[in-house]
């Protein structure tokens, strides 16, 4: 593929992620609406679905916070990656933001002046069992990103303690994190790895349960406990505080147990492209 074509593909990925609500998320929102009985909660969910319809039809961003663009690049064993390739992906994202009139939200963290599109974050991972390359764009809005949490537990901590921390993190996120949420959880690794796993879990399909039996159980338990918080859609109360909980794990050190929580608002946006 030529560099120009690759850049164009990235620009289209930006449009897809920003204008089109993910089909799996749409499904869960519809399901939530069918279950809600509280008028304000129903109204909020209808508003979210109507917003998605308008965004799609009018090529308008689902949310004005078009996020900090995060790229997950997963390369199979048959792929050779160059820094030039990553650079083109990032340039494609930046020009996509500009082309599609998305918000320039990035600033120098100290100077905080002249917002631009510069600052795409890329995570590259080589997968031994895969072939080809998968590129996922995850524009992360900061209303919910600001609610991220990390806790370094003792290795003797119980599952109940871990669950308690995750539920408390969502409680703190509250109405301003734009519920109903999708909650990403990373357990294990190092501090940074736990948070990265939490973020990465959000790009997986949210309407499918975890293939690992133990993690599925944990996700279901958290789903129930978080919805019992009754924060509800847009914070107006109701049954739907969380649409899905996703957990990923990694081996960790005998002395520790990092737990990272990365929350997404109801406007969970991502889009992926695969090259063979």
């Amino acid at each position: 593929m030529t560099n120009l074509r690759l850049k164009k593909e990235m620009e289209e990925l930006v449009a897809k992620a920003s204008f089109c609500l993910r089909a799996d998320l749409y499904l869960l929102l519809k399901k939530a609406l069918a279950k809600e009985t509280k008028p304000n909660a129903r109204k909020a969910l209808r508003c979210i679905l109507e917003n998605a319809r308008i965004a799609n039809k009018e090529n308008l961003a689902i949310c004005q916070d078009t996020g900090l663009p995060v790229l997950f690049i997963e390369a199979g064993k048959d792929v050779k990656l160059s820094s030039q390739f990553i650079k083109i992906l990032q340039e494609g994202v930046m020009s996509g933001y500009k082309k599609h009139s998305l918000r320039a939200s990035m600033v120098d963290p100290i100077l905080r002046k002249a917002p631009s599109y510069k600052g795409v974050i890329s995570h590259v991972e080589f997968l031994e069992q895969a072939k080809g390359i998968k590129i996922t764009l995850f524009p992360k809005g900061f209303g919910s990103e600001n609610k991220s949490q990390l806790k370094m537990f003792n290795p003797t901590a119980s599952v109940e303690e871990i669950e308690g921390f995750i539920v408390e993190s969502v409680k703190n996120a509250g109405p301003e994190g734009c519920p109903p949420f999708v909650v990403g959880v990373g357990i294990g690794g190092t501090a940074d790895k736990a948070l990265l796993l939490a973020k990465k879990s959000l790009i997986d399909r949210v309407d499918k349960s975890n293939p690992d039996r133990n993690l599925k159980k944990l996700e279901q338990s958290l789903f129930k406990k978080i919805n019992n918080l009754r924060i509800g859609p847009m914070g107006f109360g109701g049954k739907t505080t969380v649409l899905a909980v996703k957990v990923k794990t990694a081996p960790t050190h005998i002395a520790g147990l990092p737990v990272g929580v990365n929350i997404s608002c109801h406007a969970l946006r991502s889009a992926a492209i695969t090259f063979k």
Binding site: A44, E50, N51, I54, I62, C63, P175
Partner: peptide
């Protein structure tokens, strides 16, 4: 006042 959160396309209209 609260405006509907995460509904920027709807509000743009």
């Amino acid at each position: 006042f609260l405006a509907p959160s995460g509904c920027g396309a709807l509000l743009a209209e």
